[in-house]
Amino acid sequence: MQLNKDDALRAYRTMKTIRVFEDRVHVEFETGEVPGFVHLYAGEEAIATGVCLHLDDGDRIASTHRGHGHCIAKGCDVRGMMAEIYGRKPGLCAGKGGSMHIADLTKGMMGANGIVGGAPPLVCGAGLAAKTLGNGRVAVGFVGDGGSNQGTTHESLNLASVWQLPCIFVVENNGYAEATSVKYSTACDDLADRASGFNMPGIVVDGHDFFEVYEVAGEAIDRARAGGGPTLIECKVNRYYGHFEGDAQTYRAPDEVENVRQNRDCIDNFAARAVSAGLVQEDDLASIDRDISDLIEDAVNLAKAAPKPEAEDLLTDVYVSY
């Protein structure tokens, strides 16, 4: 699957925006100003980016508690996201959702999700709507290795296959469900193997490799659009931060993350390969880096200065009408 220059630059911009966003939230969280529970996506950027580059606003995704990367890759407003994480009124969800519930249905982003395994049934629904309406749309559900063990995920794989829904299930296997290793929690070596029991293709990819994710996801999405039914893609990857901000991560090997950062970082590897192949120039990337730095700085400043929701907002939007 050939990538043109524009797409390569989009991919880089998306991955780098996620990285800088997450690194900055990590820093800001330590100041105590960011409330609640925050789960960072840094290290996994190639997955959200490689999948969502094939989608437009009419295609749907549903996400996990570690959802910032999916939101950015699907086109959610970065300033609105940051304001939401700070619990401010101009936030994407008016300060009523927070990090675990960022959504923008106009962008086809059906929501991060605080319930592990919450998304796959909803993705079947988006696939069913696309199939019923005959609009050629697809729906992508992201789950972690933890979520892959939930009954909802297994039920949804079966339903999507039985109904031949235009759905793609992407398992982001970062090795840990909270603080428990996938080696302990999961009865198979490759989560993608489970696909055969549901009579759909199951493919393992290196989640640090944008190009591999992009290619495999593209094939699965094309197949789904053409009425060929669902696919399960397992992306093996590492997360750079803990399960949540504040997680001391003593369960991990001391050099585990550093090794990946040095040798397998998805953004470094993408940049090196794209530049050496002549697809993009160093200057292009540097220019994007400057844009992103300004954007995230602006987003944080706006979020900090933004008003919080007011008492009158407490009871709005419980219902459309009541």
Partner: peptide
């Protein structure tokens, strides 16, 4: 549509479909 006996999946699918046009 008949569904398999998987209430989480098909109730959830109905909910997901409701947010996406049905």
């Amino acid at each position: 549509l008949d569904t398999p006996i998987t209430e989480s999946a098909f109730i959830g699918a109905a909910i997901g479909a409701a947010t996406t046009g049905l």
